[in-house]
């Protein structure tokens, strides 16, 4: 297992290098520069600005010096926010986004697994249809719709919860977590239902049933481990996606997270910020994919042998 993990981590180095290179090229060929604005920027000012951020150098030179900085852990200064470094900005949003992502994941796993397992216990009955219909609604209800709807109900009409903010007013973390988690809960519900159905039809479950074990024991002790493999495979990319995709929720609730930086950086053509956030998310994706693969191996004995064997 350790060798497997180390190998994957080694593979991450060329992956990151390719990501940086491709992003660098993409970013620099996108139309509109970081300093273009509504009001015309005088030529002299533009030149002064570009000189300050080394944008007047040939592209390959910029690339080399950027790579050098990144290797030393310095992602450079933000173009949009003078005086702020990319490191500083990412750090300022990371904690918030991670916290939001964790709560959302908790919501998603709780609701998703329980709904999926419940549905799989009596397929094609009301106990199946109701949670699965709800899951379907959850999937087709995009967060840009669910968010405002929840705010309207719980923030404005019932006045139970704050309509925006993060760590500013008590209770302001609830609606964002639910909004972000619901879509994922729906996916998890469907995946876990499918996985459970598969497992429940296997021979060892039938054996367990024949032995007269209680349904609860069968599910929790025997079926769950195998039935959740598809969910686990989904969790890795989902968690990375949760962190990167929290943009909509962060905007709706004015949460100072990374998702907003990631998207705004693209709109602002804040080159270093785009690169910084991309590299950051790439690292996250690699890590989470690795984690979820390791978890899948751990959950699936056959794969475990295979990994050991290779």
């Amino acid at each position: 297992m350790l060798r497997f993990a180390l190998g994957r981590l080694l593979q991450a180095i060329p992956v990151l290098l390719v990501v940086i290179t491709m992003t660098f090229m993409l970013v620099h060929s996108a139309p509109g520069g970081p300093f273009s604005a509504d009001k015309a920027v005088p030529e002299e000012v533009l030149e002064a600005l570009e000189a300050q951020y080394n944008l007047d150098q040939p592209l390959w030179q910029q690339y080399i010096s950027y790579l050098g900085d990144v290797l030393q852990g310095d992602m450079g200064p933000s173009f949009k926010y003078p005086g702020r470094s990319v490191n500083e900005l990412i750090l300022s949003g990371l904690g918030t986004t991670a916290e939001l992502g964790m709560y959302a994941m908790m919501v998603a796993i709780f609701i998703g697994v329980i709904a999926g397992v419940t549905a799989s216990m009596r397929p094609n009955t009301a106990q199946d249809y109701v949670p699965m219909t709800a899951a379907m609604i959850g999937i087709c209800m995009p967060s840009f719709l669910l968010g405002p709807l929840l705010v309207l109900i719980f923030g404005i009409h019932l006045e139970w919860l704050p309509v925006s903010g993060w760590n500013q007013i008590p209770g302001d973390k609830i609606l964002p977590a639910i909004t972000l988690g619901t879509g994922y809960a729906a996916y998890i519900a469907r995946l876990s239902r499918g996985g459970m159905l598969e497992v429940l039809s296997q021979d060892y479950i039938r054996t367990a049933r024949a032995k007269g074990l209680s349904e609860f024991l069968i599910i929790s002790k025997h079926a769950l481990r195998g039935g959740l493999i598809p969910v686990v495979a989904f969790l890795g990319p989902a968690f990375a996606g949760l962190l990167g995709g929290s943009f909509v929720v962060e905007t709706i609730y004015q949460i100072p997270g990374l998702g907003r930086f990631y998207v705004q950086a693209a709109f602002n053509r804040d080159y270093t910020m785009i690169l910084g956030t991309t590299v950051f998310f790439a690292t996250l994706i690699i890590l989470f994919n690795l984690l979820s693969d390791m978890l899948a191996v751990w959950l699936n004995p056959k794969l475990r042998q295979q990994v050991r064997g290779e």
Binding site: T23, L26, V27, A266, I274, T278, F281, A282
Partner: peptide, 14 residues
């Protein structure tokens, strides 16, 4: 993994 990581929005704009 690489394609996952590339900034989608910039890609679309391009």
């Amino acid at each position: 993994d690489i394609l996952y990581a590339l900034p989608f929005m910039i890609f679309i704009i391009l």
